[in-house]
Nucleic acid binder design. Structure first.
Length: 420
RNA sequence: GUGGGUGUAGCUCAGCUAGGCAGAGCACUUGGUUGUGGCCCAAGUGGCCGCCGGUUCAAAUCCGGUCACCCACCCCA
């Protein structure tokens, strides 16, 4: 036998246990997101190409070569969520309804990168965006939401790195400062950085290579590029984070690659991830809404990568198992057997049976393997008396009971033995 | 997009250096006195050795290509 089809490169199939973990992460995230009063929205996977060119930036890798395009149309599979939420916000003129909005979303994103650990072509984001306030308390709230989600999920070791790029003017100033001052050190930089000076000078200060780090350190700019307001806001934010007990690492060399970021940028990294070590990242984008043709409204947000969170969690949640299995002997009346199964389900009991005509021994083995607590054994003689055997697998005890009281009995057993 | 590694049973892998019947463990199926799980024992099922081509009497093994996966770079969440 030969498989005719295989999955698309860079996409993943989640097994039942992986799916359980995935859904657990989503559930626990939603729990926290709700507590922080962000409203979940579901947006389409298809978007106009131009939206991302304009917001994420035409010179970014994402836009230049990682977007999946629909043949012959200016439509792409969304590579990220923020631009899309802003598109929705503007299209529905939500700023006319209230001046402040908080949204969250969960869904697949698509980028045509070469697959690697923690890097798929279809991957899932959990994101949150707060639109309409300049307050640093919003930045703090997003960061605290982000870490509360991770804690609730059970991600143990993560680090928050934070920086401020400053407002649009500060950011451009920093950019040209870097560009200029790096020209004379150009020969000392790695080939990648030599290229970066031209189209994305900010990324040079984020380079991990020793040689480049040394050059960047010698520039010693830190917060020098920030205007008074931005400096004050950033200080206030860091102060507040400290007051509320949120640990962070101030990293003046942290840069986010998307064009729309201004002021606060942050990322959450975990060491258990390998080279794709960011589980989440975000920041302010005070100019994006205006840039996309809307009013001058500030905003901030973040996104977490579900697959990357899954990698950091070694333990899967305990596998779902049914409490009841209906086994039967070969000579039992099968209508009666499947009738019992059906009635148990009507009584709200999760249960299963054998559909392959296996021996009773094999059925018992199957039930054991699946972690079933109670087995209903239906034999010909018992069925004739309108009875069955109810076996407690853990206690290794069984008793003969009337079919009429089975569901009630099981329901109270399940309640009582829950968790043991 | 660049570099390196790996493709053999459902899973984890040995076999490849030096060509000669396709292997192990786990899992699965059946059985070990009539109709009962775990532990143990026995037997059994299961492979186009990723794919295409070349060399050879003979290829999982050598050579060329190709695809996929993994890791790193890059990029990003």
């Amino acid at each position: 036998m030969k498989n005719l089809y295989s999955g698309i490169r860079g996409t993943a199939d989640l097994s039942p246990s992986e799916t359980a973990l995935f859904l657990d992460i989503v559930d626990k995230s939603r729990e926290v997101i709700e507590r922080f009063a962000y409203e979940e929205i579901v947006l389409p996977v298809l978007e106009e190409k131009g939206l991302f060119e304009k917001s994420v930036g035409e010179n970014t890798d994402i836009v230049e070569r990682q977007m999946f395009k629909i043949e012959g149309k200016d439509i792409v599979l969304r590579p990220e969520g923020t631009a899309q939420v802003v598109r929705y916000f503007l299209e529905k003129s939500l700023y006319k309804q209230h001046d402040f909005h908080k949204f969250s979303y969960v869904g697949p994103m698509f980028r045509g990168e070469r697959p690697q650990k923690g890097r798929l072509r279809q991957f899932y984001h959990i994101g949150a965006e707060a639109i309409g306030s300049r307050s640093f308390y919003v930045d703090a709230e997003l960061i605290s939401l982000c870490s509360a989600i991770l804690e609730n999920i059970g991600v143990r070791k993560f680090k928050l790195r934070i920086n401020s790029l400053g407002c649009f003017r500060d950011k451009s100033r920093l950019s040209s400062f870097i560009k200029q001052s790096l020209q004379e050190h150009k020969s000392k930089l790695c080939p990648d950085c030599k290229r970066r000076i031209r189209h994305n000078p900010l990324r040079v200060i984020d380079c991990k290579k020793e040689q480049c780090r040394a050059v960047v350190k010698s520039l010693d700019f830190k917060e020098a590029h920030l205007c008074k307001d931005c400096q004050r806001d950033f200080r206030n934010l860091l102060n507040f984070l400290e007051e509320t007990g949120l640990k962070y690492v101030y990293d003046p060399y942290l840069v986010r690659g998307l064009d729309y970021y201004t002021n606060t940028v942050f990322e959450i990294v975990s060491e258990s991830l390998g080279s794709q070590n960011a589980i989440g990242a975000g920041g302010r984008y005070n100019n994006l809404i205006k840039f996309l043709g809307g009013p001058d409204i500030p905003a901030a947000g973040f996104a977490l990568g579900i697959e990357r969170i899954m990698i950091t969690l070694k333990e899967s949640p305990p596998r779902y198992s049914i409490p009841v299995f209906v086994a039967y002997s070969a000579d039992a009346d099968s209508n009666a057997v499947y009738g019992i199964l059906s009635n148990l389900r009507k009584s709200g009991i999760n249960c299963d049976s054998d559909y392959c005509g296996k021996s009773l021994k094999a059925q018992m083995r199957n039930a054991q393997r699946r972690g079933v607590r109670f087995v209903v054994i239906a034999g010909r003689d018992e069925l004739k008396k309108n009875k069955i055997l109810l076996k407690d697998m853990k206690e290794s005890r069984q008793e003969e009971i009337d079919i009429g009281v089975l569901a009630g009995k099981l329901n109270s057993f399940i309640k009582e033995k829950k968790g043991d």
